[in-house]
Simulated scan of single mutants.
Amino acid sequence: MKNILVLLLLMLGSVFYSGGQNSKPIFSSNSDVSFDEYTAGVKYAEIVLSFTNQEQVDKEEGIAPLYYLAQHYLMEIGFEYVALTSAEKTQMEMSVKSYCDFTSVMFGGDISKNSISNMTITFVSCIGDIYSFQSQKKFTYGKFTDIEKKLVEDWKRIVNKKRSFDPQFQFKLPSNPTSWNTANIKQYYNENAANLKPVEGMYERVRLSFEDLSGGKYTVGVVKNPDADEYMLIYLSGAINSKDWRTGELKGILHKTSTQGFYSVDWISRDKSLHEDVYCNIDETGITFYSSGVIPLYYKFIKIYPVKD
């Protein structure tokens, strides 16, 4: 690993990204919560990589040793677990009860012949708050320097410690409550059985492969919006990050199109971000949501209520 790091430091004009922290950020998008308070509310970290760098890390080649060192550094300053590989990131997303349990981390810097300058470490919270740190110092490395040890020491000069976890400082994803719950949505279907639209009903997600496990086995309900010519998609249960979702929250809005049974969708993803490049169609078995956007998705739901013989 050391030899590869030496070669990386000798490359001209390279840029790297990874993760860390500091007590005096050069930029903070949240003036109400200090960086120390924010990191006291998280347990884990995820190192954010470009597609190319993620591929190299997963194959343990190219720039991978640098990121493995960054992973070690983040553990050393106090994070309980740091996800770096694609498999580690999937496993963490399947394990946490809230997306606010972890922070996203990015490193930056300019690597010249035998030094690194403009080192940056940026943390992004579950609700998009940014804490960014930068060192104006130029870190110089000689041929016989213990590169790994020196890099960790220099990162620690920028950010050197994470406070112990304290749940009172943990952020929360935004909530989108409605008046619906499992009991009254079933009551609505029963009382309006003769007048329900084909799309209305309760649906359960079918997980089609192992990769789908991270998405949760959702149960949702579709009801007509009494105030607009659209349908509301109501979350009822099943999210893996169960602390982020409550029964009755809005999961999406279905907008009619000129094609019967086909809808455009305002989709609220599991991290509460909004995706508008989503569509769905209904058939005799249920409803399918899909998107070909930047973050593609494909979710198949079967209709489970009202029950039919």
Rank of each mutant, 00 (worst) to 15 (best):
174 P>N: 14
150 K>A: 13
238 G>C: 05
69 L>P: 03
205 R>Y: 11
162 K>A: 11
233 L>E: 03
102 F>Y: 07
10 L>A: 08
167 P>L: 03
85 T>E: 00
30 N>C: 07
291 S>G: 14
291 S>M: 13
34 S>A: 03
214 S>P: 05
23 S>L: 06
45 A>K: 05
28 S>H: 08
51 F>C: 12
300 K>V: 13
309 D>I: 07
107 F>C: 06
178 T>R: 14
34 S>Q: 02
173 L>Q: 08
63 I>C: 11
250 L>Y: 00
44 Y>G: 00
79 F>Y: 14
29 S>C: 10
297 L>W: 01
163 R>N: 13
98 S>P: 00
309 D>Y: 10
184 N>F: 03
202 M>S: 03
273 S>R: 12
12 L>C: 05
245 W>A: 11
126 C>E: 14
308 K>P: 04
173 L>G: 06
128 G>M: 06
169 F>I: 10
116 I>K: 04
286 G>T: 12
118 N>V: 01
226 P>Y: 01
217 K>H: 05
286 G>I: 10
133 F>Y: 06
138 K>T: 11
293 G>A: 11
43 K>S: 00
149 K>F: 06
233 L>W: 03
259 T>P: 08
195 N>E: 14
111 I>N: 06
308 K>V: 10
192 N>P: 02
40 A>H: 01
267 W>I: 06
301 F>I: 02
31 S>R: 14
259 T>E: 14
105 V>P: 04
84 L>F: 10
105 V>D: 12
241 N>L: 06
